[in-house]
Design a protein around this nucleic acid. Structure first.
Length: 352
DNA sequence: TATCCGTGGCC
DNA sequence: TGGCCAAGGAT
């Protein structure tokens, strides 16, 4: 149990640090403006939080600017076609987020008159809002004193209190520790301060403890090896798979398919492919699995790494026709997930 | 509860 | 270069 004096000290020091060191982010209302009563639009907070799930700030930021320019309100997003939103999300990864984003926008626009719920429990019921995102939107947009716990906060707590239990088993304890520090004063700034500290000072590698406002209280620093926290369970090896991707062209058009709505790259445009399996593909096998009979030529291969397996894709190219294809101009290939954009670029560049 | 689900930057 | 890492959620 954290003593009240320590709790107050940690809060005061971190909020003061945030006042001086808050990052300037496109979706953020800074501490000075918040003191003047300004609050971020819940739509923008929600959109940014969903984009930032398991995603770095530099990667998400351009997408946030593109989305908010094209769809300034939740109503604009809610009435957009699925294909347009999926295409705009292409390259950001974790495409279930985009499907849930639309479902959530339509729920808010249709059932709540365009206003997001004003309680954490209400937010938690929306598609794509789990414990973290519901707490974050509640704190940042509504100033609710929620317990916002992401990977940054887990790391800060693990170090501050030298938690020896490895992740992911330590998650409940780390969340409880973070919860003891939450207070009624400046909940939105508190949540963002903790995450900024984790992102810029209490970093995974090479933490900048000499710049940390909590260093005097940090048990891991006192122990001499703060960078070794949080402890982590051993990881499982990533298997490798092999497949064939087919680049079928008619002049400047390329044949694409729409992947099934769920599962890997669900709902996204894609190149037609074979199965992805452990064994490699011979020329004969690759021809037999092709979407059309044509003069297929081998035009190279690409490697790609997904979360739970790596992939080598042989590339076969031909000019011809096939049933059920979505014919797309080369300029439209930016609607493809990265793995297929990479494959298309390599395959179209390598002329035999 | 464990597994599935992307991507790009970094060292 | 391969493993690590990033503001997690759904099933």
């Amino acid at each position: 149990m954290t003593p009240e004096s320590l709790r107050q000290s940690l809060r005061t020091r971190l909020l003061a640090w945030y006042d001086q060191n808050a990052r300037d982010l496109p979706w953020r209302v800074g501490p000075a403006a918040r003191r003047d009563g300004m609050r971020a639009d819940p739509y923008r907070v929600w959109l940014s939080e969903v984009m930032l799930q398991q995603t770095t700030v530099p990667h998400a930021a351009p997408y946030f600017l593109k989305f908010t320019q094209r769809w300034p309100t939740v109503f604009d997003l809610a009435r957009e076609d699925d294909a347009e939103v999926m295409a705009a999300w292409a390259g950001l990864g974790y495409y279930a987020r985009a499907r849930n984003l639309l479902a959530c926008a339509r729920a808010v626009a249709g059932q709540h008159g365009g206003a997001f719920p004003d309680t954490e429990a209400g937010l938690r019921e929306l598609p794509g809002l789990g414990p973290y995102t519901a707490a974050a939107v509640g704190a940042i947009a509504l100033d609710l004193p929620t317990n916002v716990v992401d990977g940054n906060v887990e790391r800060v707590m693990a170090r501050l209190f030298a938690v020896e239990t490895p992740l992911p088993d330590a998650k409940p304890a780390l969340k409880a520790l973070a919860g003891e520090l939450v207070g009624e004063d400046r909940p939105g700034d508190w949540a963002q301060a903790l995450m900024d500290l984790g992102a810029t000072v209490c970093r995974p590698k090479a933490p900048l403890c000499d710049r940390c406002p909590l260093a005097a209280a940090c048990a891991a620093l006192a122990g001499g090896a703060p960078e070794t926290y949080p402890r982590k369970a051993a990881k499982v090896a990533r298997p490798h798979r092999n497949g064939v991707a087919y680049i079928l062209t008619q002049g400047d058009q390329v044949a694409l398919v729409r992947r099934p709505p769920k599962g890997l790259l669900g709902g996204m445009l894609a190149l037609p492919t074979s199965d992805w399996r452990t064994n490699g593909w011979s020329d004969a096998e690759a021809m037999a699995a092709a979407p059309a009979s044509a003069d297929w030529r081998s035009v190279g291969e690409v490697d790609h790494v997904f979360t739970h397996f790596s992939l080598t894709l042989r590339l076969l190219r031909a000019e011809g026709e096939a049933e059920g294809m979505i014919w797309t101009q080369r300029s439209g290939l930016d609607a493809l997930p990265s793995v297929f954009l990479k494959a298309a670029r390599v395959g179209l560049a390598n002329l035999l």
